[in-house]
């Protein structure tokens, strides 16, 4: 018999996974253009780790806001999370596709993905996050869910500026 995890498990796990992955990329963007070396694998890994760590802190803040009286809100929180996923999952899929194309396609076609894929996706990211907040809050007047959605969005959007301000103000 195959065990299929319930939505109560998959939704928060997927959201947490996407948040940490997004944080890692935000850390990378924060470090972008601050190290002029050619070989910098360790620098990139460190920046991604810092972004992921800050994103985890944002997740923790969201958990603190949302997990009070969890028993009563469990169902509503799961539904809000599923609505959030419906907005951010297609965006994440597009980002993964663009990144894959950038890495795998021949030189010129791969570089094209920066212009038509990754670049525009970075620019619309705040709009997608705002859309996810609206989706999470649709159909509920529970202030805790509103606060959780707002906290999560703030956490996601502040990773890049926080990492940049803390570690990457000036070129190394």
């Amino acid at each position: 018999m195959t065990w299929i995890p319930a939505q109560e498990v998959t939704v928060p796990v997927a959201l947490a996974g996407l948040t940490v992955a997004d944080g890692a990329f935000a850390g990378l963007r924060a470090a972008t253009g601050r190290n002029g070396r050619i070989r910098r694998r360790a620098y990139i890994v460190t920046a991604a780790g810092r972004g992921a760590a800050v994103a985890l802190a944002g997740l923790a803040a969201t958990a603190v806001v949302s997990l009070g009286d969890l028993g009563r809100r469990h169902q509503a929180l799961t539904e809000a999370g599923a609505r959030t996923l419906a907005v951010v999952a297609p965006y994440a899929a597009l980002a993964v596709l663009s990144l894959g194309a950038y890495l795998l396609l021949p030189m010129r076609e791969g570089a094209l993905m920066v212009v038509v894929g990754l670049g525009p996706l970075i620019l619309v990211r705040p709009i997608v996050v705002a859309g996810a907040v609206v989706a999470a809050c649709l159909g509920t007047r529970d202030p805790v869910i509103w606060a959780a959605a707002g906290t999560a969005a703030a956490g996601v959007l502040t990773v890049e500026p926080l990492v940049r301000r803390r570690w990457y103000r000036e070129p190394l």
Binding site: G33, G36, V114, E170
Partner: peptide, 22 residues
């Protein structure tokens, strides 16, 4: 300082466009 910051950012942009490979 501004020139160094801008050119370092520009380096990353050029790397994404794979200028050295070109």
């Amino acid at each position: 300082r501004l020139f160094v910051r801008v050119h370092t950012e520009l380096q990353w942009l050029g790397e994404e466009l794979r200028m050295a490979e070109r």
